[in-house]
Design a protein around this nucleic acid. Structure first.
Length: 491
RNA sequence: GGCCCGUUGGUCAAGCGGUUAAGACGGAGGCCUCUCACGCCUCAAACGUGGGUUCGAUUCCCGCACGGGUCACCA
């Protein structure tokens, strides 16, 4: 490879702006930790008015999943994490899929070999031999092969990999934006493979090459890469490249001991949406898992997050994902929706329970908005609309309303003709009727409301009170249910 | 096991040498009220541990304990 190729690659690299990248491997599953990493990465770029890129890391051919990339696109788009460059939108330093860049890695690996920072390895150790303990990489004879010996092996067609040549002496220090300076003895760093036998780069090498060639200024990733960061530095140094800022994020945990994972059945972003969580709530909550802006405010839109984001405030320790708190954010976002927006979002869920078209979905939605934690909870709250459930007359007993079965029967019998005689059937007319009756009879509203509601709904707990339920049910059905209540109580 | 990292209420967290150690979720109690919910008020609940440094440590240093990560031709 002549120098002009290298020069051309260098010439493409954008300068003078913050550039970050989200670089998932396409597994078809966007877990919460991934989403958070993407969010922080995006925030760093947007906060600095820089560029956010998407790069697909698919160098492991054995783990390709059909449609996996689409999950990534969809999740990012849903969450508002727009990217400036990527496989779908292109950009100045493409391609943005590693397998499409396969030819760019080997020249750099060879350059490292020339500079004695890497070497061809012809070992054919099996895994068990490597693990047996009687072979240490440091003693690998390939480390000290002469150029002639290497050429002979290559000419003979022996399979090879290229490994990084880590010095045995000294130590390497790197700086992380949130963990500070970290030093590791070189002797503990192994000669990791850079180019695999199949000719593709390993993650570790592809990452370094791509991050540099794409002009990435902030390398954001999970803290599991913390211990390999010293090796990255050695690679950057060997290639004569500037070292980017590292931002290592601690994991999102399912409990004190385990990371969130597909294996444990922890929900992905899509799972959470299917469970009835709003995207905005998920994003807001996830942002606050392992990061806090400092004040007392917790509700932030994605745009606001970008504005206030300060990576130096990312927490060093892992954070446990708490669904209860996510639920809290969800209720906050639900309550903040306009009634129209909520009605639109809730309608499909309402119609799962209420098939009767006479029951107005937007009226029901109005009852639900202050009482919904997540949309999926809606249907079970509404089961009484289509059909009056079987219920015990004991439901009519309610001490606080001074109601018992005898009083209930009396109330129902007396309220029925008044409801039947109403000129119009509106929420106001129904309310006036019930409240007016209580006033006339000299009793508390509750004594009228309680039995009417029980008769209308047949359950102790309902969204909305007697007035709203009667209104939504309509006159005919309301009277029918009151009659049923009378009959039940008279027995 | 080696190396690296972490440790404030049950959870998320503020704090960055001197505080009555914020706030939120969850929990408990109360008010409001036609049930539930919403809203409002109140309460309980924390600096892992032992040494230093200092007039003074949750904050700085060291040890210990506990937890996590990593030691792949996976990312």
């Amino acid at each position: 490879m002549d120098n002009t190729w290298f020069d051309e690659m260098e010439a493409r690299i954008p300068q003078g702006e913050v550039r970050t990248r989200f670089a998932p491997s396409p597994t078809g599953y966007m877990h919460v930790g991934n989403l958070r990493t993407a969010l922080y990465t995006w925030c760093i770029a947007r906060n600095a008015r820089g560029k956010f890129l998407l790069r697909i890391e698919d160098t492991d051919q054995s783990r390709q999943v059909e449609g996996a990339v689409d999950v990534i696109y969809k999740t990012l788009a849903d969450c508002g994490l727009d990217h400036d460059e990527g496989p779908d939108v292109g950009g100045p330093v493409g391609p943005y899929v590693q397998t499409e860049r396969r030819s760019t890695y080997l020249p750099y690996a060879k350059r490292l070999v020339e500079r004695r920072c890497a070497y061809y390895c012809f070992c054919e150790k099996t895994e068990s031999e490597e693990d047996s303990g009687d072979f240490t990489r440091a003693d690998d004879p390939c480390r000290s092969l002469t150029d002639e010996e290497v050429r002979a092996n290559l000419d003979a067609g022996k399979p090879w990999v290229i490994r990084q040549k880590v010095p045995h002496e000294g130590s390497t220090t790197f700086h992380d934006e949130i963990f500070g300076d970290i030093t590791a003895p070189n002797a503990d760093l192994d000669d990791q493979v850079l180019i695999k036998r199949d000719g593709l780069p390993t993650y570790n090498f592809a990452n370094v090459v791509d991050d540099h060639l794409m002009g990435i200024t902030h390398v954001v990733r999970g803290s599991e890469y913390l211990s390999s960061a010293p090796k990255y530095n050695l690679l950057y140094e060997g290639l004569g490249w500037p070292i980017p800022k590292y931002v290592h994020c601690s994991p999102v945990m399912r409990d004190a001991h385990n990371k969130m994972s597909k294996r444990h059945g922890d929900p992905s972003y899509e799972d959470l949406v299917a469970e009835g969580y709003l995207t905005e709530a998920i994003v807001n909550y996830v942002a606050l898992l392992g990061w806090a802006p400092g004040g007392e405010r917790e509700i932030y839109s994605i745009r606001e997050l970008a504005e206030v984001f300060d990576m130096s405030r990312i927490s060093k320790s892992p954070a446990i994902f708490d669904k209860e708190k996510l639920t809290y954010f969800n209720t906050e976002y639900i309550k903040a929706m306009s009634p129209e927006a909520f009605a639109a979002a809730a309608e499909p869920w309402i119609r799962k329970a209420v098939k009767n078209p006479a029951c107005d979905a937007s009226l029901i939605a109005a009852l639900l908005q202050q009482r919904t934690e997540k949309l999926s909870d809606i249907p079970e709250k509404l089961d009484f609309f289509d059909e009056l459930p079987e219920y015990s007359t004991e439901l009519y007993i309610h001490k606080k309303s001074k109601c018992d079965e005898v009083a209930a029967l009396d109330v129902l019998r007396r309220i029925r003709p008044r409801l039947a005689a109403l000129d119009v059937w509106t929420e106001d007319s129904v309310r006036d009727c019930l409240v007016g009756a209580a006033e006339e009879w000299g009793c508390k509203n509750a004594l009228v409301m309680w039995p009417v509601r029980i008769a209308a709904a047949g359950k102790a707990v309902t969204p909305g009170g007697a007035v709203e339920i009667l209104h939504i049910l309509g006159r005919e059905e309301s009277l029918r249910r009151i009659d049923a209540g009378v009959e039940k109580l008279a027995r």
